[in-house]
Structures are given as C-alpha cells and as structure tokens.
Design a protein around this nucleic acid. Structure first.
Length: 136
RNA sequence: AGGUAAAUCCGGGUAGUCGCUGCAUGCAAAUGCGGAGGAAAGUCGGGACAGCACAGGGCGCCAUACUUCCUAACGGGAAGGGCUUGAAGCAGAAAUGCAUCAGGUACAGCAAGUGCCACAGAAAACAAACCGCCCUGCCUCAGGGCAGGGUAAGGGUGAAAACGUGAGGUAAGAGCUCACGCCUUGUCCGGGCGACCGGGCAGGUGGGUAAACCUUAUGGGCUGCAAGGCCAAAUAUACCGGCAAUUCGGUUCACCGAUCAAGGGCUGCCCGUCCGGUGCCGGUGGGUAGGCCGCUGGAGGCUGGUAGCAAUGCCAGUCCAAGAUAAAUGACUGCCGGAUCAGAAAAAUGAGCAUCUUCUGAUUGCACAGAAUCCCGCUUACAGGAUUUACAAAGCU
RNA sequence: GGACCCGUAGCAUAAUUGGAUAGUGCAUCUGACUACGGAUCAGAAGGUUAGGGGUUCGAAUCCCUUCGGGUUCA
C-alpha cells in the first residue's frame, strides 16, 4: 500500500481526456448516470499498454457559470478532488483488466465548497465501483 | 483628527504538504529556475505580422472633420481657440457687452444645390392679411355694413414667425431712415505658426436641420494567427509501374501480341434492350485525424540625465519578466495583514454619543476579475489602502 | 480567438423616409349570458420600445456607449 501511494495522487496529462475523437466516442457511446451536481458519462475500453487505466474529462458549462474565473475554480476543485480520491478505481480496474473513459460534467449554478466536491466525488467513485463489480 | 472630488500608484504577505505547466541538466529517476491583469474583459479605434489581389487614373463605397503639436498609427493624447450652460459682479433705458470662477462641447460647409419642418396657425420661407390698424368709394337716420387697396407694429398659434432695443417717420405701418447692438459677406491694417483676436471701410441673400441627401478636404485594396507554412497514420480516391484476371487476334495448342475502358450479345445496319467495365502489390499527388512552426526580445520594462507648459522625444546604464491548446498558473493547513460585529481602556470636550488609537474575543478566504499572435489607445467593472492637488469647514445633543 | 446579427406588454407580431394617445392577435382580469363551466359578447389592465447619454422643436426610428441573446469561421 505504501509503495503505490505516492504515484497514485498525480494527474498527468495522459490521464486527462483531450482528444476530440475520444470525446466524441465517449459522448455517443457512453453510459451516463447522475449524482448531483455531476452528470457522469462512462465508456469502457479495451486495455492498451500505451494508455492509462482511466482518463477523465472535467467540464463546466458556460451557460451555467458565466464567469471564467468561477469556471476555472470549479474545474480546479473537481480536478483536485478526483486526484485525491481516484486510486480505488484504478486498483479495481487493474484487478478486472478493463479501462475507462469518464466525463464529469458539473451542472450546479454556483461555486461549491471543496468538502462537498470531495463528498460527491467519493459518491461517484462508489457508484462506479458497484457498476463494474456487477458488470463482471 | 476626519470629510468630498479628481489624478497617479498598490491591490494581500509568508511557511509547510500534495499537485499542474514551460525551460535547463540527466539514460532514467529526479533536481533547479520561471509561471495571469490593471483591467488579462468589451472587441470600439489603430497598427505590427501573414496570405491573396495590384500598370496608371477616374467613378463609387466607407471613415474622419476648430487649430497646432505628440505618436508607428488612431475616432487616442497634450496645449490652445471658438461656441455654450450656470453663478455672483460691473456698464447700459433696453438689447447686449465686459472681465472672473466652475462645467459642457462629433466644433468644416444650410451665404453651393435639393429635401424636410407633423399638429396648431392667416402664413413654416421667390412669401403670406384670420382678428386688428389705416385710406378710398358705396349703402345706411345712426350704430354699422359691403367693395377695393395699404400695412407684419399688436393679438392669437407654435419648438421656431423674417435681426434686437430705442427714436424718427407715416393715413396706418415697415431696416423705410437714424443711433446703439447682434449675426454675417468681401476687403484692408495690426497681433498670433495657426484656429482666431482687435480695429477700419464697403455691404446684407439675416429661421432651423448635414448624428437629412449632399458639397469640400483628408485617409482607406481585401481578409484575418481558426492568417499562413511544414511533417503526416488509417481509410477513400486520381495517376504511374508490375502481376493476375477479362476481352480480342494469331497460330506451332500453350505460347505470342494487343487491351484497361474500349466493348460484346440479341441481328447485317439504325433504334431499342441486356451484360461488362476487375483484383492484388509498390510508388507518386493532393490531403483528413494528429503533430510541429508561427509563439513570444518587444513601437519592451526599470533607473538616471536632458529638451519641452504638457502629451512626448533623445541619450546613457541595466534587466529578460507566462506561453497553455477539452486549454497550466492550483488545493489544503498554520501564522501575519485586511474587513465586519461585540466588549474594554485611554485621549480631545463642561458632559454624553459619534470619531480616532490600543487591547481582547468572534466571524469571514477577503474588490473586480483568468492570458490564447503581439503591441498602443479608448470604454466598462473594482473591497480596501497610499500619495498629491482642490474645496468646504471643525459632527450631533 | 476572429467576424457578424438581433433586442417592442406574459407570448407572437406591427408602426411608410423621425411627427406626438406605441397598434393587433392569443393569454390575464372584471362584468353579461349559463344551474355550473366552455364558447360568445362588452369593458379594463398590462410598455423605462434592453439600460444610459447625445443630435433634434420632437427619437422605437439617427449617432455613441453598456448589457443580454444568437449566428458563423478549423
């Protein structure tokens, strides 16, 4: 546990979803569920040694949040929350041998507290773990 | 002390842990250094830069519009001029003028032409007579009426009524004449680089509107970093080469030649109709996903000197200060600072409250806001703080 | 990031080249009709013409500026 603790809290660019095609594929083929204030879209992929176990896309709508400063802050908070709490998902995916693309779409109307974000991201992660236990 | 307004500047700091991003070093792991703003915003002007177009000229279209200067350029800035609003003052019978202070000003030309000026009003611009005023003629006992003419002083209308005030003049009136004054055209003299100012002479076509068409002057080619350039997977396609297949011809019967879109069958021809026009490999071309360049050292910052009223220029020294791309510059915690609230103490005062200073406690991450090719400006948003200038004046009971 | 367009009652849509009370339909409210409701009839209310400033005697219209919404360009 202690050995793998350190690298798990990083979030390099490879673990962020930024390819236009991959995003299109995620939105057209992915399954979605909703835990306020997140809409979550998930797509299973075949394992590929070039790509990481899970890729994350964080989105905050310009329609919901007008100010660029507020959007940036929300995205940073969500990213921070995911970075801190993502390790169980990766462990499980390694165990079952599948990979995932995930989109976290924020649908609230104002800047949330960091504690709330952490709580909700944990809820999302719990749901993900359940889904993929059942699936296998 | 403090208040209000304007201008300029700042607009949280620090330590730790965990991250993101660029560069450097390193085989790697990693380490070191750098990492949002005054508006990064709006995209309103102007450039740099890039591509396309381009003999030269005219028309058209768009923009700008007091002067001089600054600037790479601008619809920006500085200084100045005119006009205008308000205040109190002086001169004058009044119109109006003078100087002062505080603002505002898209401020070329309606005296080049055209258009428009609703409703009201007689009339909204080569004039014009509704009421009124005056003259003449006729009718009538009279009051008065009718007809012709003169008249823009008065009434009324309107945002605006043919320059204003006073006097003369006249039947009544009128810039009809005169005095003073405003506006304006031409010209001369003086001052100023100039806008313009002061004065003289001769005039007058004397309503507004050009953010109405327009005229004059000046400027402008168009499009924008998603510009533009380079590399380039997969798939499809065009061309070239090879092989195979197809079709046709020749014959020594398994070979040769031709053919890659001609064509072939029903039929000899036309019409009609049917069939066929391929597959694999390699290369080339444009070119998609994706990547790289453009991409940050520049009309650059800071300090000092110097010219100028100033905007700003010049000189010297010194520094290098983000470069992301589904888009980095963050999260958490502690301490300091700030803000708000509560309490206490002290000072000024005759006393209390408010204010201010200090201390204690609580609350609050704490103004507006996030680079996207880069600059200059404008506009808009902004908690709080600092400095300077100007103003009023020592709060309430 | 660049370029461009639009904004009128709750909704939709007019207002000729600036001209006076900003019109119309649906919806809303009140009354009549009806046992009640609908439909119908009569009447009323509802507008900072997106906000602010300017030009003009006069602005929904012209000009500047701010805000909101939308379109488009690889």
């Amino acid at each position: 546990m202690e050995n793998c603790q350190k690298p798990l809290h990083k979030l390099p660019k490879a673990e962020r979803l930024h390819s236009h095609n991959a995003i299109q594929g995620l939105f057209t083929n992915g399954k979605s569920f909703y835990i306020y204030p997140f809409k979550v879209i998930v797509l299973e992929r075949l394992p590929d040694s070039q790509l990481p176990e899970v890729r994350i896309l964080i989105s905050v709508s310009k329609k919901k949040i007008k100010l660029a400063v507020a959007r940036n802050r929300i995205k940073r908070l969500i990213r921070e929350g995911w970075r801190k709490h993502k390790s169980p998902v990766i462990q499980q995916l390694n165990f079952y041998g599948t990979h995932l693309d995930i989109a976290l779409i924020f649908t609230g109307h104002d800047i949330p507290d960091f504690l709330l974000i952490q709580k909700k991201i944990n809820a999302v992660i719990k749901r993900l773990l359940q889904e993929y236990e059942v699936a296998d």
